[in-house]
Amino acid sequence: MPGWRIGNLGDRLFRGIAATFATIIVVVLLVIAVALTQASRETLSAYGFGFVVGQDWNPVEGANEVYGALPFVWGTLVTSFLALALAVPISVGIAVFIAELAPEWIRTPTGFVVELLAAVPSVIYGLWGFFVLRPVLIEHVDPALSRWLGFLPFFRGAPLGNDVLLASVVLAIMILPTISSVSREILRAVPNTLREAALALGATKWEMIRSVVLPYAKSGLTGAVILGLGRALGETMAVTMLVGNKPSMSLSVFEPAATMASIIANQYPEAQGRQHSALTEIGLLLFALTLVLNILARLLVWRVGRLPGDAGRA
């Protein structure tokens, strides 16, 4: 039967095409690594591992030209962890509110509004942070912090405006929806029988959450936080517009800094020669860092099932 054979051929062809397209995703990930390594080979061979721990960054051509990524790694970690410290308690609070406390009619709209936060483009957070939040911090928050907590090394120096604190606060707002929507799904996956058992033993709602729900959800929640961290590490535009883009390694949140993503956005368009290579290598580092974090987070969250809210960063 020739018709049957044509059909069979079509099936195989179709399957082959689908498989090829699907494999492209894997290939793209590999090619990213190869292409970035290729484009940064000049600094890779010139500095080796010293690039990662090098503290100086001077892109001006000449005898003093030197590239080290440590200030940017530092800036990235500081802003991201500060943002996490601000965002995690709030996000988990939201997740608990939506999953455990809120009545049905409040639940859906609240979740919806929080997820809209994720839809606002990053460059608009930058715009808002620069023109609205920055003056507020300079006038009200920074003076209070340096007055009451100025003896700590974290609040030394004169607040100038574009600094670690401003970038971290805006970052925190941006990663809130990621952490809270993943956490919410994790909490929902906790079996109801556990809740009922705790309540039947006379636990209050909070005691039930603390002793039954949170321990059960622990690894999933850790995954949610790591996903938030991954998002914070790679966030570019808002941070570039707010962090000051000055390579420095200060402990103070009133100092400007630069993150790995922000220095790429800031210097890449005008970069030449070796600076290009150095910036690409920072991109490679960032890629590797987020890759590891994401794999870790997926492994922790995956058993709970599909993640919500992957669409949204902008």
């Binding site: 793209v28 970035l36 484009a39 996903l227 790679g234 960032l286 987020t290 890759l291 994401n294 987070a297």
Partner: peptide, 18 residues
């Protein structure tokens, strides 16, 4: 899933090189 977490600026670098 991992690709969804790749920072958008990295995709810019990648396309620039390629």
């Amino acid at each position: 899933d991992v690709m969804a977490g790749v920072p958008s600026i990295v995709s810019g670098l990648f396309v620039y090189a390629l």
